[in-house]
Each structure stands twice: as structure tokens, then as C-alpha cells.
Amino acid sequence: MIRIIPRLDIKGPNLVKGIHLEGLRVLGRPEVFARTYYQTGADELLFMDAVASLYGRNSLLDVVERTARETFIPLTVGGGLRSLDDIAAVLRAGADKVAINTAAIGNPDLIEAAAERFGSSTIVVHIDAKRSAGGRWIAWTENGREPSTLDAVDWARRAADLGAGEILITSIDREGTGQGYDLDLTRAIADAVPLPVIACGGAGTGDHVRVAIADAHADAVCVASMLHYGVAQRLLERGFQFEGAGQFKVLAEKRDFGRVQPSDIPTLKRHLIDAGIACRIADSAEPADAR
């Protein structure tokens, strides 16, 4: 079964969403969204601290702990984790896995040390990749602010050799655009490593998700805008007040989501199952394995 993983970018106490990892808009409280996703059949959750290096991270640990108390699916947490101690703190707060990017590029031995201490399957190596000349991709650090010198595909292979359990590959070019995943990038990574690969960045429709799995060989997909806008739209329709989300409220009222079609997890999974892709239907309400 493939996994649908809502990605929640978190800034302080808020769920935010940007485009190309920039221009973050506040959408609301992450716990509300996380609970909704758990209840509607998310297979896993990903929390990404959008500004970890800029602020203290206690608020992130609070959000992780509150979420882990009431959601009984795997939770991966990433963003600004620098050391074994940072990883231990997030795991202690209730995360099952961590995603590491910048610190691993600066010090690849961190992958090996973390895999040895916490188990390979706990360590997800996150690669933020941007297209460069010649049909290649460069890995970027600091949440898409700084380029490294590493070729993204080579780096994925190296991370696998060092003991990563999964690779999360985000296309900075597509992130937040709703234009679809970078299929060439996803396929290049998925075919290069013997590990599960999670595609991230660009999902705007159910069919974007389908092709990432069927054509680009992703083992799991992150989805953000489609689901967040879907939740936010329903909350607005029910008269829910958004604190600090004024800018987003205006967009939602105008239904101006660009290329992103707001959706929900059951709709997305039905689309995949109809296309012959095995998905988990929550709590066995329906046959679970389409194969």
C-alpha cells in the first residue's frame, strides 16, 4: 500500500504554507489539521519546522506532544534538527521518526550516528532539490535558502549507504505551486536507492499523486496545500474564525487557490484505488488492499 502523508509546515504555534518554501501564510492551528487528517485516513503525518534555526523550538515540541497524544499513526518531525540531542528531544516528545537535511549535508556522519543510536528506520534523510543545468538537481540547505554543492541523486545514494531508513525528496521548484510533483526528480531518486522514497512538493490534483506513484515510482507522497485548503475551506463554511490567518481567509473566500484543487484524503484515496493503486482505507470500513 502506498502512503498518503499530509505535510504540515509549522511556524511557532501555527500551520503555514508558502510557495517554493517562501512567503508563508498562516492557515491555523496545526493540531486541528492533524486531528482531521488522522480521523479521515492519513497514513502518517509530517511536521516540518519552517523556521527552526530562527526561533526557539519549544513550541514545536509542544505541538508534537499534543498531536502525539491524540493521533495513533506515525509522526515524522523535521526542520532544523542539528544533533543527536535535538533528535532525541523530538523523539521523546512523541515523534516516531525524524527528517534531517542541513545538518546531514554539513556532517554526513550524523546519519550514521543517528541510525546507530535510534535505528535506521527512525532516520529519514530529507533532500530539498532544485533543478540546475544539464537535467540534474542540486540539494539545498536551510529550508531552501542555501545551495550546497551536492548532486541530489548522488547525495540520496550516499545517505542510503550511511544508514538512512527513507528518503524524503522535495522539489523546491514545484513546492506550493500545484503544478504537480517533479516526476523526473522523484523517479531518479526512487530508482537510485533501495529505500522507500517519499515524493514531496507540487501536488495540486489527485492525478498528480497518481502519476508520482505509478510513473515516478514513489513509495509514499506528501500532500499539503490540497488538503490544508480543503480543511480550511470547510472550516470557513462552518463559520470557524481563523486567528491570525487574515491573509489566507481572503484567499479562501475568493476561492483563489491557484492551480491547487482543494480536496480531502478519502477523495484522494478513492481516485488512487480506482486507478488500481493499493491504499489503506481507515479502520477497515472498506476492503483495504486493492491488489
Binding site: 502512503r3 522507500p196 483495504a288
Partner: peptide, 13 residues
Amino acid sequence: GRRLKVPHVGWLG
């Protein structure tokens, strides 16, 4: 025909 990924991470019936 696609190779299976190990570690196996995900949901199975």
C-alpha cells in the same frame, strides 16, 4: 518487477 524497498515501511493487511 519493481524491486521491493527494505526497510519495509508502511501499511499491510
